[in-house]
């Protein structure tokens, strides 16, 4: 395997006096899908927030394409799509306006692809409806449309399938597979049984601190 995209070395994190993980090391390369597993409270979301750069309450080293993270943080952000618990969708804006803002935040995004992305998630015809008038599932799909819009190689997805119907889940699985096949990398958590070939798993329960 070539140089790993993202490398994690000796990661340590504690929260509320509890060690979530200690000495956690792993790496992911291009074309890989890594599922983070663990019970509720095992630190899945915390790990994803650390990997994305949102949370800084940890010790240990992160490397992006072999460089220490602190030195390449701008390149890293350009290559990252983070999909968290919070939808990141403004209720008073329309889906189109919401995605337009994401296009401005991520340089190199093609604004012409916004309509295409909305069609892909089944929101054609709702482009100009303020998001607070959409259903919860549709709201979620506005957020998911970012996956179609993005050209980032690394996706970090925290429970991407909540509030999505069966058909939507299958569609998202296909999307993840396609992304990996095209040389992209996906790190995700989910309660769904994923039916993906070549899926790697990382279980946090076995890593939990001993102290």
């Amino acid at each position: 395997m070539a140089e790993p995209l993202l490398k994690v070395e000796n990661l340590y994190c504690e929260r509320d006096e509890r060690v979530l993980f200690e000495g956690l090391s792993f790496e992911v390369g291009a074309g890989e899908v890594l599922q983070i597993e663990g019970q509720n409270g095992s630190g899945k979301t915390t790990l994803l927030r650390i990997l994305s750069g949102l949370s800084r309450n940890y010790e240990g080293d992160l490397y992006w394409r072999g460089e220490p993270m602190a030195e390449v943080v701008d390149e890293y952000r350009q290559a990252l799509l983070y999909f968290g618990h919070l939808p990141g969708v403004k209720a008073t804006l329309t889906p189109q306006e919401n995605l337009g803002w994401y296009a401005a935040l991520q340089p190199g995004t093609d604004t012409a692809s916004i309509d295409m992305a909305l069609r892909q998630v089944g929101l054609a015809g709702y482009e100009d409806v303020p998001c607070h008038m959409l259903s919860a599932g549709q709201h979620r799909r506005v957020s998911l449309a970012r996956l179609y819009l993005s050209q980032a190689p690394l996706w970090i997805l925290d429970e991407p399938f909540t509030a999505i119907d069966k058909k939507g889940v299958a569609q998202k699985e296909q999307l993840i597979l396609r992304h990996a096949a095209a040389g992209g990398t996906v790190i995700l958590t989910t309660h769904h049984e994923l039916r993906l070939g070549g899926l790697r798993r990382l279980n946090l329960d076995q890593l939990a601190g001993t102290s």
Partner: peptide, 8 residues
Amino acid sequence: MAKNKTDK
């Protein structure tokens, strides 16, 4: 403590 080798 940051164990950043580069500024050590």
